[in-house]
Structures are given as structure tokens and as C-alpha cells.
């Protein structure tokens, strides 16, 4: 299955930023993104990550007791709302 994207959702932006600090320190690639509507109707941040790093991130979350809602995977293509094409 292509176009699977991986996200971590948080109860508040604070815990998201806390995890970001650790990811930065550990040099793990991540992107802060608006939470996809498919995963939650509340606005706010999520962290998109590479599947290969999931175990390491999971460990960081556990060791540092970071409060997260969970890890989610989603088949997702971004729509180009201006030009009407879909993109990965």
C-alpha cells in the first residue's frame, strides 16, 4: 500500500513540543503538521514521522513519559486545492 503516512497525536500542543525536543536531540526526522481531519476534528498539531523510526520514538515516549494520544497510520494523498491534482 502506497501513500501511507504516520502521525503521532497529542492531548495538547505542549506534549507535542516536548516530544519534538527529544526528536531534535536524537536527530530523528519529523514534520509538525496540522492534524488530519481523518484522525480528529479538533484542530492542532501532530507529528508526522517515518515508519522506520517508530520503535525509537516509541521508546523515547515511554522513557520520558510523554503524554500522547497514540501512533496512527493513514493512507493519505494531499489534494492540490488550487490546481486540482493529488500529490503524495
Amino acid at each position: 500500500m502506497d501513500n501511507i503516512k504516520h502521525y503521532i497525536l497529542f492531548p495538547s500542543y505542549n506534549t507535542g513540543l516536548a516530544l519534538e525536543g527529544f526528536l531534535k536531540k536524537e536527530k530523528i526526522k519529523y514534520t509538525i503538521v496540522p492534524t488530519p481531519r481523518e484522525l480528529s476534528t479538533c484542530c492542532g498539531i501532530s507529528i508526522q514521522y517515518n515508519k522506520a523510526d517508530e520503535e525509537r520514538i516509541s521508546e523515547i515516549v515511554k522513557v520520558n513519559s510523554i503524554d500522547i494520544i497514540g501512533f496512527y497510520s493513514l493512507q493519505k494523498e494531499y489534494k492540490d486545492l488550487y490546481l486540482g491534482q493529488n500529490k503524495e
Partner: peptide, 26 residues
Amino acid sequence: PELYGGVYLTQENRPEGMNYFNFVVS
């Protein structure tokens, strides 16, 4: 999220410092 994703998150090789601005938009 859809508009931002389609315009911004599809750009390749963005600077990591843009994460703060992703955060502000989110």
C-alpha cells in the same frame, strides 16, 4: 489541513526550521 498539506507539506527538502511555522499554522 488539506489546503496546507497540498501546498506546503508536498514541497520537497524544506528547512527543518519551518517546523515552527508549521506549528503556528496548525
